[in-house]
Write a protein that binds this DNA or RNA. Structure first.
Lengths: 186, 186
DNA sequence: TCAAAAGTAGACAGGTCGGTCTACCTATAG
DNA sequence: CTATAGGTAGACCGACCTGTCTACTTTTGA
């Protein structure tokens, strides 16, 4: 495997499980078995490595997310499947993405709170991308643009809420609770 | 003011605006004008100071939150007022609590991801406390215990979702969007 | 074939980290 | 009056931080 990719994957895993500021560059190097010079050949600074890790997670998470929604019929079933996917994630039943330690994008945004920072912006872009995927499925259900926006907001709010509850409170059933609400309303 | 309280307040402000691991003990001391010996007289380690900062935020946030809900009639109005309060918070219209940088408890949980850590547990306790306050108001609306639980979950999920969207995506209108949904359902 | 590119190990620099310690200075309660 | 608790400033410790650098080796593509 490409050294750059190897670095980013190792970095992501460590950042995700232990926190970004809590993980030093030397640990990433030791864990990946790659020389320091090589890291600084590919990335001008740790921040750039962090940003790369965020974008890597965006790609892999999004791929997993899409594959789950594509596994069922578009529209209502896909929107409900979304919460089944979250439930599997919370309970570590997904091999594609790492064991649940909250949402990496929320966590990274917590550590890089400045909304102008490249890292925070990359996190916001991820969330916007996922919202667009949801929006596509909602659009299949409603003729009115306004109504579709409203339902998208509902689903996204419940999804984010479920992730937060699952991580902070350890309420791993939050996804199914959210699903129940959506099921009743859709 | 008591030196211990002064330390905790300064620490909280710095931790909240810049992140916990990103703020060293020496900065807290410089900012508060307190000697290092005094800090270690009151707290055995930085972690204990962090935990104290979390508990301090719990007290002040909870006080603000209660005062908002108590400002209107109990039940439905209080539940809607909750989202007005969030909206004011997001838009920095609240002097009681600091400028919005996301939820400190979510942020701290991101940096201290281990659910067994005292800090993470303190964050979970805060969230549970707020949920109980909400639950009290929901109970006024429904006879059935089951229905009340369901509505509480809805409100809490939307609240957490709104906080996440406001911070990560910078969608400061998330609270009013959530309010709109609750208004329609209640 | 052989130059360029990409890799290796790891010493090193300058700085910050959490935490300890000495030496001294109030304030106050018995 | 004086013992004690709580405070001050800041030197110091060992560890770790990001990032640079030297010196050498491997891979690769024109």
């Amino acid at each position: 495997m490409d050294k750059q990719e190897q670095l980013v994957r190792t970095a992501f895993k460590l950042f995700y499980t232990r926190g970004i500021h809590a993980v030093g560059i030397n640990l990433v190097l030791a864990e990946s078995g790659i020389a320091k010079k090589t890291l600084y050949h590919h990335f001008p600074s740790k921040e750039h490595l962090v940003e790369a890790a965020v974008r890597y997670r965006d790609r892999s998470y999004r791929a997993w997310f899409i594959s789950r929604l594509d596994g069922v019929s578009p529209g209502r079933p896909a929107l409900l499947e979304l919460f089944n996917a979250l439930d599997d994630w919370f309970h570590n039943r997904v091999s594609d993405i790492d064991h649940f330690h909250g949402c990496f994008f929320i966590n990274a945004s917590a550590e890089f709170g400045d909304r102008d920072s490249a890292i925070h912006r990359a996190c916001a872009e991820h969330k916007a991308g996922i919202t667009m995927l949801i929006r596509k499925h909602v659009a299949l259900l409603y003729l009115s643009e306004k109504k579709a926006d409203e339902i998208t907001r509902l689903v996204v709010l419940l999804k984010e809420g479920a992730i937060s509850l699952a991580h902070v409170q350890g309420n791993l059933d939050a996804a199914l609770e959210a699903k129940g609400i959506v099921e009743g309303l859709l």
